[in-house]
Amino acid sequence: MIEVTNYRDNPLIDPHLEIWEWQISVYLFLGGLVAGLMILNGLWRIRDREHETKAITNSAVLWAPVLISLGMFCLWLDLVNKLNVYRFYMTFQIKSPMSWGSWILFLVYPAQILAVAVAKGSDVFGGVLKGLNPLLQILKSITNGREKQIAWLNVVLGVMLGIYTGILLSATAARPLWNTALLGPLFLVSGLSTATAWNMLSRPTKIEHSSLAKWDFSLIITEMFLLLLILIGFLSGTEGHQSAGMLLLGGGFTAVFWIFVIILGLLFPLWLELREMRGHSTPAWVAPALVLLGGLALRFVMVQAGQVSHLPDTELLFGAVGH
């Protein structure tokens, strides 16, 4: 037997961390989604599919600045000293993923706005956004003829943003569940998948929808493959990684992970998309809605379970490292 009595009992620290709540999960989810939107939009434009995929290139990308602003708002809500938020932009800390993230977020805005200008083509804003049209005209004059460069800029920044949402967590050796190099790629792929789903909900044509479904099908397969690799990595890793893996495989987060992330978020939409590819008719919104839900659930599970995971207390218990 081993009995450990820790008298620390600090709020939000003990018995395990509870420092990050829904704000961070939502922020990571939205960051991934926006990264996906930027990449998809860029790639489609680079491949010049403008005419067959209006949703991706046109309507969805308009959401990117809105969604990322919402995400950053969530991040801001999480800050204890909200008035000090400007401090993020008074410095650049090269070793700090969060500092990188702050500056990436700073840079994605202009790229997204340029992408919006490109996406608007010859259109102008209507309704409440009418007032923006003069600005739009100026932007269009900049973007005119530089569509591909802007697309590339969005792809590169999108990849950075998507991977960053994972590295923010994975650069934390203290929390084994986060401490896997595959978390960045996982969040990137998940972001792409949720962005695809977002596009599928943006009233695409039937052709667009089935092409997006195919694309999403491969993303889901990739995501599952990455999750499998991550779990294998945990189970074959150190004691800390093993117990982190066990949080999802028998521990406290097992049910929510398997039901919301794996079954509802991955397997079920995968099956629906397979049916769609085989020509069966399914309600078009179900699969993408589940993918979005699954993406959000993934961030919730990872953020919460990661705060429970810790390096083993018993590591080298009584054992000397030197004499």
Binding site: L12, I13, L17, L79, V80, N81, A174
Partner: peptide, 26 residues
């Protein structure tokens, strides 16, 4: 203290859980 935003990344990063958020905001 005056530079801290209370983002809590340091708390997450510390393997010893030695840090906490002072209610004064850092």
């Amino acid at each position: 203290n005056e530079k801290c935003t209370g983002c809590k990344a340091c708390i997450a990063a510390c393997p010893y859980d030695a840090r906490f958020i002072n209610p004064a905001g850092f």
